[in-house]
Amino acid sequence: MDNAWTEHDIPRQHGRTALVTGANTGLGFEAARMLAEHGARVVLAVRDVEKGKQAAARIARAAPGADLTVQQLDLGSLESVREASAEIRTAHPTLDLIINNAGVAYTDRQKTKDGFDLQFGVNHLGHFALTGLLLDLLLPVPGSRVVTISSYGHKIQADIHFADPQFERSYSRAASYGQSKLANLMFTYELQRRLTEQHSTTIAVAAHPGNASTELVRYLPAFARMSITVLKPLINQSAAMGALPTLRAATDPAVRGGQYYGPSRLAETRGYPKLVSSSAKSRDKAVQQRLWALSEQLTGVTFPV
């Protein structure tokens, strides 16, 4: 039944190599764990290597014999993204799957090492650069995928602020987060268009977790954290459940490029994963292409498609 897709529906992953960003905790950890349990070789790309090693040890206990690698990656530094990409290329001649999962949400005004707005820089630009630097490792692999994690937040105060993408003039946590999550979807759709034009079997897919119990809420204002605490029994779900849309997007043979998966119940806050719809704004091809050009300019990374 479509509404009851679970981790037991993940096909065998033996022979596949998956790169998961932010894999030391929350959704990324659960995605890495389930992929490893189904036989994938998993690269845990994390900012804190020690925490990554601890996560790998936990996964190894759940999946004895799992093939796990910890890769240092700071998405807030283009230098780190380039170094990590070079190391990954040396270690892995091909990749089957990139899961662009790591992110920050509703932070105070902060900048990345390259001077980008933290949420836009980490959530979108870091993943844009990483994918561009590694995409040629996926292109020769039949059925390879790029899965990028968005959020229901792409519909809330969300726009691409081309006149001030780094929020130099004024800053709003929600607008910054909304821009980054809208960018994740626009990146997915434009990447899929380019892959389709080249008749590639690699596909780009997006997913969102609904309201999952993860560390992202640590940056929320106190009143928002209190609201989540009150509503938690109704709308929250575990990180393992929140990771299922990602895993379905990453592994379900029925998935098609350019699709978007999220929870099935209570306005997409919780439940088993299903195909969902994104905002009309996210489907604007002209804005997608303008965002792509801006992202290339800011990161200095161009794609092989």
Rank of each mutant, 00 (worst) to 15 (best):
L195D: 04
D9E: 14
D117H: 01
H124E: 10
G257M: 10
E215T: 10
I156T: 13
F29L: 15
A18D: 10
E268H: 14
L138S: 07
E168A: 13
T25D: 15
P263N: 09
A175V: 00
A105Y: 12
L68P: 01
D136A: 07
F223S: 14
T21F: 09
H154D: 05
G126W: 08
A4P: 00
R33K: 14
Q166R: 11
A62G: 02
I99D: 09
A293D: 13
Q157F: 05
L216A: 10
T25N: 13
D164Y: 05
L298T: 00
A174G: 12
T196V: 10
D9A: 15
P64H: 10
S227L: 15
A63W: 03
D67S: 13
L95A: 01
H92Q: 15
Q71M: 15
L133W: 06
S278T: 14
L78A: 00
Q179W: 05
S176M: 04
I203Q: 13
T251P: 09
A66W: 04
N101I: 00
T196L: 09
A40L: 04
P221M: 06
Q259A: 05
N184D: 15
D252E: 06
W5T: 00
E197F: 02
A91V: 03
N3Y: 13
T69L: 12
H8W: 07
A204T: 07
D48V: 00
A243G: 05
L133Y: 09
E7G: 12
L275F: 04
H199K: 13
D159I: 00
A250P: 09
L216T: 06
K51C: 04
H38W: 02
K274C: 14
P253S: 02
V81L: 09
K285P: 06
T302D: 08
T269I: 05
A129M: 08
G126A: 09
G15R: 10
R173G: 04
A158T: 01
A63E: 03
E50S: 13
P209L: 02
A36P: 02
R109W: 12
G121H: 04
V146E: 08
L135S: 07
L118E: 09
D2P: 14
H92Y: 15
G257H: 11
V146C: 04
V20G: 01
I88V: 14
H14S: 15
L294Y: 14
A163Y: 07
N100A: 15
Q13A: 03
L244R: 13
D74Q: 02
N101L: 05
A240H: 11
A183G: 07
M241C: 10
L135R: 07
V141T: 14
Q71Y: 02
P165V: 00
V46W: 09
L135F: 00
A239E: 12
F116D: 03
H14A: 15
V205D: 03
A175I: 00
A40M: 05
S85Y: 10
R109V: 00
T251F: 06
P273K: 06
L244M: 15
V287N: 05
A293Y: 05
D284W: 05
A212S: 10
V147C: 05
